[in-house]
Design a protein around this nucleic acid. Structure first.
Length: 542
RNA sequence: GCGCCAGUAGCUCAAUCGGAUAGAGCAACGGCCUUCUAAGCCGUAGGUUAGUGGUUCGAGUCCACUCUGGCGUACCA
C-alpha cells in the first residue's frame, strides 16, 4: 500500500515542481477513521509556498492519477492532512505475495552485498554471565538478526581481555581455593572472586593433578584453566539463548601482532601524543574532546583506550561497511575517545554505530538486588533461563526500547511466566497450526480464488497489519530498535485473536472458508518470520 | 560541580526522526466456552505526559531553566 503511494507521488512530481525531490512521509493514522495512510506533506509546504495547507492539499490531490480499483477515496482532513482509503479488494493481494515468498517475506534488499560487524557481550572471562550481560547479549544478537534480514552479511563478535589485573586476581583466587582444598590454612582476601565456581575449578584441578601443581604460578595453569572453564560456560549459556558468536577477539593478540606499538607510533608521527609526568597522553582536546587522556601509564602499561582504538582499527581493516558496538551505559563515556582516535587516524568513524543500553534492575521481594561479580552477589543468566525459559528471557530483554531502564521483577517472572506476552504471540502461531490441522481433517483447502470475500472488519484489519510488516521492520532496522518488532507482533497477534473469535472457518460457506484459510496461513508466515527475527520459537502446539 | 540517559495510568512500558481524540499489558471490576486451543475475546474504570516558560498551523516529542532517578566524570575496564 505504502509502496503504491510512493510510486504514485513519484509519477506525479513532474506536474508539481515543488514535490520534486521531497521525501514524503506516509504514516498509518492512529485513528482508523483517518484512512489507511496519511501524509502531512501539505502542511510542511506551507512556508515554502505561502499558502494555506488545505489549499495545497487540494492542488496535490487533483493531479494524482490513481487507480480507482486500488484507492477508494482521498480526503483532506484536519489542518491539512491528506488521507488515503484503500479498497477492500486491493488489500487481499498481499496474501498470495506472502504465501509465495514464505520465509523470505518481509526481507529487505537495501543492504545486500554489505558486511557488518556486531560486537556484543564482550565480558571478560572472570565469572558466569549475569542478567545484566543477558540484556546485552539478546539485544546484540537480535540486532545482528535484523541486519541479516536487511541484507547484511553479519559477523557476531566477542571482544575480551585475558591479560590485565582482573585476570591475575582470578588466577590467584583459584590458586588460593586450590591450596585451601589441600588443607592449607590460608586467608582468602575479601576483594577476590568469591563465587562458588572458583571452588569448583579449584576442585577440578585438585582431582586432575592432586598436589603436584601447588608451586605453579597463579598466572599459569590456574589462570588458564579458569579462563577455559569460564569461557566454556559462557558459550554454553549463550547457546541456550540461541546465540552463536563467530569471532572471539582477544585483546592480547593486539600486543602480539604489534598493533599497540604501531598505533603509538602513528599517534606520535601525527603529533597527536606527548609525554607528561612519565605518562603518554593523547591530544584529544585537539580532536574535539574536552580533555587529553592518558594512553600509557607511567608504569609503562597502556590504559584501555589504546587497545580499544587499536581494536577498532582492525575492524576497519577488515572492511566492514557497518560496525556496531553495543554496551551498557556504564561504558558510555569511553566511546567518544575511541571514535575521536580512529577518526584522527583517517578512518571513517561514521561507519561505527554505538548503541548504549540502560541497565537491568532485578527486583526481588520488592527490592532491587545489588550485583557485583567479585562478591558473587548476583543472579546468573543461567539461573534466569532455568526459571523462566530461553524464549521468555529473550523476549523480556527486547520488548522495551534499549534506552529505557529495564525492571525485571523476578517474583513475577517466576510465578507468572504463563502470562508473559511472549506466550501471547506463540499462542497465536500455535492456534493457527491447530486450525490448519482441523481444516485438513475436514478436507478444506486453502484457496486464492475468492479472496474478495474477506470483507469483515476483523479480516480487513488483519490484512492491513500484514501490509505494514516490511515497512515496520525497515524502520526498526534503520533505527536499531528491536523492540518495535516485538510491538508489531503483539499487535498482529491481537488482530489475529480478534479474527479468531469473530470469524469461523469450519462451518462457513466453502469459498469463504478456503479464503480464510489462506489468510491465516499468511498471518502465520508473518508471525513466524517475526518470531524468528527475534530469535524465538514458533511452536505448533502449546 | 560537569557530561550522558531517563521521568507518560496504581505497577511495567509504547507512542512511526513535530501530527489529528496519548495507547497496551499487569493489577481492579463486569460479561463471553455443548462448534476451529479461554495461554483467548468484549466492556468499565484509571492521565495537567515531573514542573515552569519558549519555538509554530500543531509539542509527550524540539529549546532553556528547575526538581527527581540511573550511569559516568581515573595513570580501573
Amino acid at each position: 500500500m505504502k509502496q503504491y503511494l510512493e510510486t504514485l507521488f513519484e509519477k506525479t512530481s513532474h506536474k508539481l515542481q515543488y514535490l520534486k525531490g521531497k521525501e514524503i512521509v506516509f504514516m498509518v493514522p492512529q485513528n482508523s477513521e483517518h484512512g489507511d495512510y496519511s501524509t502531512n506533506i501539505a502542511m510542511l509546504l506551507t512556508k515554502e509556498l505561502k499558502k494555506n495547507p488545505r489549499e495545497i492539499a487540494q492542488n496535490i490531490i487533483v493531479v494524482l492519477e490513481y487507480d480507482k480499483s486500488v484507492i477508494e477515496k482521498i480526503e483532506i482532513a484536519g489542518p491539512g492532512f491528506i488521507n488515503f482509503y484503500f479498497t477492500k479488494n486491493s488489500l487481499v493481494k498481499i496474501i498470495p505475495e506472502i504465501i509465495n515468498e514464505n520465509t523470505n517475506f518481509g526481507k529487505l534488499e537495501k543492504y545486500s552485498g554489505k558486511k557488518a560487524n556486531v560486537e556484543f557481550v564482550s565480558a571478560n572471562p572472570t565469572g558466569p554471565l549475569t542478567v545484566g550481560h543477558g540484556r546485552n547479549a539478546v539485544i546484540g544478537d537480535t540486532i545482528a538478526n535484523m541486519l541479516e534480514w536487511a541484507g547484511y552479511n553479519v559477523d557476531r563478535e566477542y571482544y575480551f581481555n585475558n591479560a590485565g589485573r582482573q585476570m591475575r586476581v582470578l588466577g590467584d583466587s583459584v590458586k588460593k581455593r586450590y591450596l585451601q582444598s589441600l588443607g592449607e590454612d590460608i586467608e582468602f582476601p575479601e576483594d577476590y572472586y568469591q563465587g562458588d565456581y572458583i571452588k569448583e575449578i579449584a576442585q577440578k584441578l585438585k582431582n586432575e593433578h592432586g598436589a603436584r601443581i601447588k608451586d605453579e604460578s597463579e598466572s599459569g595453569i590456574f589462570k588458564e584453566t579458569a579462563e577455559k572453564e569460564i569461557f566454556a560456560d559462557i558459550e554454553k549459556t549463550l547457546n541456550r539463548l540461541n546465540i552463536k558468536m563467530k569471532i572471539f577477539f582477544n585483546e592480547n593478540s593486539l600486543y602480539e601482532q604489534g598493533k599497540i606499538e604501531g598505533l603509538l607510533k602513528s599517534f606520535e608521527e601525527k603529533n597527536l601524543s606527548y609525554e607528561k609526568e612519565g605518562a603518554v597522553w593523547l591530544s584529544l582536546s585537539e580532536l574535539g574532546q574536552e580533555n587529553d587522556k592518558v594512553i600509557v601509564k607511567s608504569t609503562g602499561e597502556p590504559t584501555y583506550r589504546l587497545p580499544d582504538i587499536a581494536y577498532h582499527t582492525t575492524k576497519f581493516d577488515r572492511n566492514y561497511d557497518l560496525i556496531v558496538d553495543l554496551f551498557g551505559s556504564d561504558h558510555a563515556a569511553t566511546y567518544p575517545d575511541v571514535l575521536a582516535g580512529v577518526k584522527a587516524l583517517g578512518y571513517d568513524s561514521l561507519k561505527v554505530k554505538v548503541l548504549i543500553h540502560q541497565f537491568v534492575t532485578i527486583m526481588q521481594g520488592g527490592e532491587a538486588v545489588k550485583m557485583s561479580t567479585r562478591k558473587a552477589n548476583y543472579i546468573t543468566l543461567d539461573e534466569l533461563i532455568d526459571w523462566v525459559g530461553g524464549d521468555v528471557v529473550r523476549y523480556f530483554f527486547i520488548m522495551r526500547s534499549i534506552g529505557s531502564h529495564l525492571n525485571f521483577d523476578l517474583d513475577i517472572a517466576k510465578k507468572q511466566s504463563d502470562e508473559n506476552p511472549v506466550f501471547y504471540l506463540q499462542y497465536a502461531h500455535a492456534r493457527i497450526s491447530s486450525i490448519l490441522k482441523m481444516t485438513d481433517e475436514q478436507k478444506l483447502k486453502s484457496s486464492l480464488e475468492n479472496l474478495e470475500l474477506l470483507q469483515t472488519e476483523a479480516e480487513q484489519n488483519l490484512l492491513k497489519k500484514l501490509h505494514s510488516f516490511q515497512n515496520d521492520i525497515e524502520f526498526a532496522v534503520d533505527n536499531f530498535e528491536p523492540h518495535r518488532i516485538a510491538n508489531y507482533l503483539e499487535e498482529l497477534a491481537s488482530l489475529f485473536h480478534k479474527f479468531y473469535t469473530e470469524c469461523r472457518i469450519i462451518g462457513s460457506e466453502k469459498n469463504l472458508a478456503e479464503a480464510r484459510i489462506s489468510l491465516i496461513i499468511a498471518a502465520q508466515i508473518v508471525l513466524r518470520n517475526g518470531l524468528t527475527l527475534l530469535g524465538l520459537n514458533a511452536p505448533d502446539r502449546m
